[in-house]
Nucleic acid binder design. Structure first.
Length: 604
RNA sequence: GCCGGUGUAGCUCAGUGGUAGAGCAGCUGUUUCGUAAACAGCAGGUCGACGGUUCGAAUCCGCCCGCCGGCUCCA
């Protein structure tokens, strides 16, 4: 939800600053409830900390927050206390009264509130008056947008506290932010809390440990995931599938190592623009080597290694490359934000006239793969905005041509998309793909970017039809993005219930008693011979316990074998969810499972 | 990086200055079982690291490391 710049905010007058429910849209009403609740939070915060300095308290996607400067850190107990007080004030039904006052009057009113004074200074540059809103004994500087009284706040819960810089600037004081969830209906709040619990159950960090997929080690370093055998199978399947799709679509595969010299990144511009995200260099005499933070300079260097004719274009280099990025320690998180990552990167070297068709080709790949993974897509074209301080390098006519090429391609694809002006990279326009997971969360995974800058900087050239040298356009393209992050998304999307083709163990034999062990091993060997990933639970537990364990490990098929099965050369098939598929002939079942894997079927 | 929280057995967690605990997992034995947990015993720890206070530190203080929530949503 992009906010309008301040000067484009709808002007509010006293008549609409406070509104009755039936006079506004439900979304607007909800925003008003959330914003009004923030006022009440500030009111009760002052009851506990009379010296608290108030910053801002806007409505957000799932509720509201308010930033405060307080004499001491808030505790979970404080949160409970604040919530209790808020509910008490809510019940009292204080009226919200909004009015405009002259700047000077406001300055007096908020004399002991430095953040409010700063805001008043800002607002009075444009207007002589500012808005204030009063309920009960509490008055806040306020743009307006309230419910009528505090009985109309809706249903809320204070969720957490966090540090937040004043105006999001790390050079400014750090405040304490209190987050609250708020919805109009009681069941909406309950559903929201249930969603959070479901997200916690699906958390890939938790499932990664429970399913034995990956781990981290203090000895190795923060942000460097280590993949256990079961996790590596998933990585490998994702990568080999992606590689196969690309091969089919005419991509070549290359390999460019892990480090490169400083000069390369000086040429590419990374030292200037990306320095703080790169690990410090390794020094070897007069040379400095950097761990690769990106592949583009390496692929472009590779392109330069051979002389190219326009007849060869487009040339498409793809690579699963391990990259290292020095992410700030505070932002690391599981597999979704790491310092070592494997990117399914590709660079297409082409002529301007080929942008549209190459873009469409990439689009096909993105669509095919996301369909296989069961993720819905939202597409955004990120276009340049008004020229600001040379943010967008290169000739305007090239930009216009590239933007038109992308639009043409998007229209030809028939996909719905939005245009986001001012969001382009400094080197060119791009399309970003947001995947929608099972919980309705969006993840930015795939991207297709036009690069009008780097090829020239690195010195990429081809010989044109006219016999002269020309600089190619490069398309950067990633489908799954980083394998690590993508795995994290898939784990959460499927809650660890991978389709058989990705599942580390595709089927497990469950012998009922020890005398069935030989038969179980025989069936397992038969399955392995077909390339299936199968194991045998040879432990001394009872069958019930083995089934429970297999199910907790989210193994797609449990194959129970006892006397009946052994005699008939069959297995009793139980699906992960508990569904009993009955006794099936071994060969028939294995053939069906192989087929399911071959087709990469999902059972969702 | 910054703010707050947190770190005890493989995992989940009790334990607030006086000899380190439970459940699950593991191992051993008994049980050989028909669709989500059989029973018993055993073993398992420099209490994240380093330094300090103290007769004595998992516990108090300092520093470092890791992990968790946040640091965009503008009166």
């Amino acid at each position: 939800m992009a906010e309008l710049p301040n000067d484009e905010q709808p002007q509010v007058d006293a008549a609409t600053a406070v509104a009755a429910r039936d006079t506004v849209e439900p979304d607007e009403w909800l925003r008003r409830q959330r914003h009004s609740a923030a006022h009440v939070l500030a009111q009760v915060m002052l009851q506990i900390f009379p010296d608290a300095k108030l910053a801002i308290g806007p409505p957000i996607d799932t509720g509201f927050y308010y930033d405060f400067l307080l004499p001491r850190p808030l505790t979970p107990g404080d949160l409970k206390d604040l919530e209790k007080r808020m509910k008490k004030e809510a019940k009292r039904g204080h009226k919200f009264v909004w009015e405009e006052v002259p700047g000077d009057a406001a300055r007096q009113q908020f004399a002991d509130q430095p953040f409010k004074l700063e805001l008043i200074e800002q607002f009075t540059e444009e207007s002589d008056t500012v808005g204030i809103c009063t309920h009960a004994d509490f008055t806040d500087l306020c743009r307006g947008g309230h419910v009528q009284h505090t009985k109309q706040l809706g249903y809320f819960k204070l969720m957490s506290t966090a540090g937040a810089y004043w105006r999001g600037d790390e050079n400014k004081p750090q405040l304490q932010r209190v987050y609250g969830a708020l919805f109009s209906q009681k069941d909406e709040l309950a559903a929201h809390l249930e969603r959070l619990e479901e997200a916690a159950r699906r958390d890939h960090r938790r499932l990664g440990r429970e399913l034995g997929l990956f781990t981290f080690s203090e000895d190795i370093g923060a942000g460097i995931p280590l993949f256990l055998p079961k996790g590596e199978i998933i990585r490998h399947e994702i990568e080999s599938y992606t590689r196969d799709v690309q091969t089919r679509k005419g991509f070549d595969h290359v390999w460019t190592g892990h480090i490169a010299k400083r000069q390369l990144y000086e040429k590419s511009g990374h030292i200037d623009n990306y320095d703080s995200d790169m690990f410090p260099p390794m020094v070897d005499g007069d040379n400095e080597y950097f761990l690769k933070p990106m592949n583009c300079p390496s692929h472009m260097t590779l392109f330069k290694a051979e002389l190219h004719s326009y007849r060869e274009l487009p040339i498409r280099y793809s690579e699963f490359a391990t990259l290292y990025r020095y992410e700030r320690s505070g932002v690391l998180s599981g597999l979704t934000r790491v310092r070592s990552l494997t990117q399914d990167d590709c660079h297409i070297f082409c002529m301007e006239a080929q942008i549209t068709s190459e873009f469409l080709l990439c689009l096909e790949i993105v669509q095919e793969e996301m369909a296989t993974f069961g993720l819905d897509l939202r597409v955004a074209l990120s276009l340049p905005g008004e020229e600001e301080e040379g943010k967008y390098v290169a000739a305007p006519e090239k930009w216009d041509a590239a933007v038109e090429a992308l639009r043409t391609a998007m229209k030809a694809s028939g996909l719905e998309y939005t245009e986001e002006v001012g969001e382009a990279a400094f080197y060119g326009p791009k399309a970003d793909f947001f995947a929608l997971d099972a919980l309705g969360r969006e993840w930015q995974l795939s991207t297709i970017q036009v690069d009008l800058i780097q090829p020239e900087r690195i010195g990429c050239e081809y010989i044109g039809e006219d016999g002269d040298k020309h600089t190619p356009v490069v398309l950067h393209r990633a489908v799954v993005g980083s394998t690590e992050r993508f795995m994290g998304v898939l784990i959460e999307h499927w809650a660890g219930n991978f389709p058989a083709w990705l599942a580390p163990v595709q089927a497990r034999l469950v012998p009922i008693a020890d005398r069935h062990l030989d038969y179980a091993n025989k069936v397992a060997a038969q399955a392995k011979a077909l390339g299936l990933r199968v194991d045998v639970d040879a432990g001394g537990e009872r069958m019930q316990a083995k089934i429970r364990n297999g199910q907790l490990q989210k193994i797609p098929y449990l194959l129970v074998v006892g006397d009946t099965e052994e005699e008939a050369n069959s297995v009793a098939v139980r699906k992960r969810g508990g569904e009993d598929l009955g006794v099936q002939d071994v060969e028939a079942f294995l053939a069906e499972l192989s087929q399911e894997i071959e087709e990469r079927r999902r059972d969702d």
